[in-house]
């Protein structure tokens, strides 16, 4: 006999988002600096440094190609770190979730709140990258802003996947597997740094099912105006990862907390 999974569609998870926002606000500047600096260093370093030696890729300068990919990479990293390390410390180290569930909140409320929160942090990182792209003169006009909903979707996809890992983790060490076996390969298989067409066909096929691939294709199309092969499919794949990720993590975390 357990409490009903989702009683009715309340907005209680917003309290969890609000709690995390209040904490974030206290360390806002340090946190934003961290979110922005890392991808920008890559963008400037690789884009100008390496880009100088590179021919045009798919008809664009290397730094333009890279920027679209880095936008997604930065969103992925942000959501992943939040859903793994920060969420795990609230689950296990600080027992924040336990405290919240002593109030009239359910495990589903907590997980939904964390899921949305990590996606919002990803959106913030994506926005920072987009601003950098404007400043570097890589994008112009209002059209590139259309990428922001996609960044949120990328955030939701990786936040959901990350929360599954958190649900399964016994300690922080567990997350190293996820980074080495999932996140790092994904970075190289999804066409962030170079076009996927450079990879052997088998490896390309693996890349085709990864969420970051679809995010990068969409982001490049929307920011740089390059033609998109299958935008609807891209959105559906990302939405699929996001939905599956959050559903599985709700079930797993509920099982873990309601022992």
């Amino acid at each position: 006999m357990t409490e009903p999974l989702i009683e009715r569609c309340g907005l209680r998870y917003l309290h969890v988002v609000g709690r995390n926002f209040l904490v974030w606000r206290k360390l806002m500047y340090a946190s934003m600096l961290g979110n922005m600096a890392d991808p920008m260093i890559y963008l400037v370093g690789l884009g100008f440094g390496l880009g100088g030696f590179m021919p045009a890729i798919e008809g664009m300068r290397y730094i333009n190609f890279l920027a679209g990919g880095m936008l997604c990479y930065s969103a992925m990293n942000s959501a992943t770190f939040e859903a793994l390390y920060s969420a795990f410390s609230r689950l296990k180290i600080q027992r924040t979730w336990e405290g919240i569930m002593h109030a009239p909140m359910t495990a589903a409320d907590v997980v939904l709140g964390e899921w949305i929160w990590a996606a919002l942090k990803a959106t913030l990182s994506g926005a920072a990258m987009l601003i950098a792209m404007y400043l570097l003169g890589l994008v112009h006009g209002l059209r590139p802003l259309a990428v922001m909903p996609v960044v949120l979707l990328i955030g939701l996809a990786f936040s959901g996947l990350g929360l599954i890992m958190t649900a399964l983790a016994k300690s922080y060490e567990f997350f190293i597997f996820y980074f080495t076996l999932v996140i790092t390969p994904m970075m190289f298989l999804s066409g962030v740094f170079y076009p996927r067409s450079a990879l052997p066909p088998v490896v390309q096929a693996i890349g085709a099912v990864l969420p970051l691939t679809h995010g990068a294709d969409l982001a490049r199309g929307l920011t740089l105006g390059t033609p998109m092969a299958h935008p609807l499919l891209d959105v559906l794949v990302l939405a699929g990862y996001a939905t599956c990720g959050v559903s599985v993590s709700v079930l797993l975390i509920r099982r873990r907390l309601l022992k």
């Binding site: 209680r12 309290h15 609000g18 709690r19 209040l22 904490v23 206290k26 600080q94 027992r95 924040t96 336990e98 405290g99 919240i100 002593h102 109030a103 009239p104 909140m105």
Partner: peptide
């Protein structure tokens, strides 16, 4: 639980908040 108070065995106060914030944020739940 909305009508109940719980004082758990292990401390799960929110270390990121001040004393008063702990109460205010908890009230929101």
């Amino acid at each position: 639980r909305a009508r109940t108070g719980v004082c758990p065995q292990f401390d799960n106060l929110d270390p990121d908040f001040t004393v008063a914030e702990n109460l205010v944020v908890y009230g929101r739940y």
